[in-house]
Amino acid sequence: MAVVFKRPHALTNVPTHYCPGCTHGIIHRLVAEALDELDLEGRTVGIAPVGCAVMAYDYFNCDMIEAPHGRAPAIATGVKRSVPDSIVFTYQGDGDLAAIGTAETVHAAARGENITIIFVNNAIYGMTGGQMAPTTLPNQVTQTSPFGRDISQAGFPIKVCEMLSTLEGSSYIARVSVDCVRNVNIAKKAIKKAFEIQSQGRGFTLIEVLSTCPTNWGVSPKDALQWLRDNLIPYYPLGVYKDVTEVKKEELCDG
């Protein structure tokens, strides 16, 4: 019997702790598939964040390091500079990457650090129970913006891809989504390309993945996907923001 679907080797065979319907699981799978297809697992070191993905160190089969909140890009830098032929990726949420770890993120990009960041933007602090994140939309209700994010008080969301693509050090910056099969396939391509660019030593790559948090958004997994489509994608347009290898935008984008 032909095998048509199996667990990627780069994923361990353990149940994850993610909530039902959460798209963290899909993103894990895409990263693992990319590592498999490029045969990178053996020389890869992954850096887990503080956030819902904190236990990613148990889920990826490559060597793993758990970072302090927001510091994954600095940890990744230390690894990459010490083991230059390793492949290093971080997997970070929006609070981790765009609030407490903003400096580490921006400077890793500015240095053109030869690492790959998988940035999971679910517009909320998932792990701590649904507080406002730096990417929470204007008027979005969270535990700590109970009347909706008031931009006069809380300011504006941070558009990470737009910001980092202005830095000369960044090489490949793309925003993708995992809300539907077509976008999942596009996301896969982008993630794989980021790892390819890294293995060619061509610099800093970041893939922002729009992701759901049905639990803290307070909706069903199915409605969460629709909410992402209706609210996140318009505010955070999908596409390639920077590409030093210059592949045309249409190939990766289903904006």
Partner: peptide, 26 residues
């Protein structure tokens, strides 16, 4: 070797942590 001027002491110590975790004397 690697000399790297970090963006802060927070980043520097975490780079040390990464290097140490990867087995380097740092």
């Amino acid at each position: 070797g690697t000399y790297l001027q970090a963006e802060s002491e927070v980043a520097a110590v975490n780079m040390l942590q990464g290097a140490g975790a990867a087995g380097a004397r740092a």
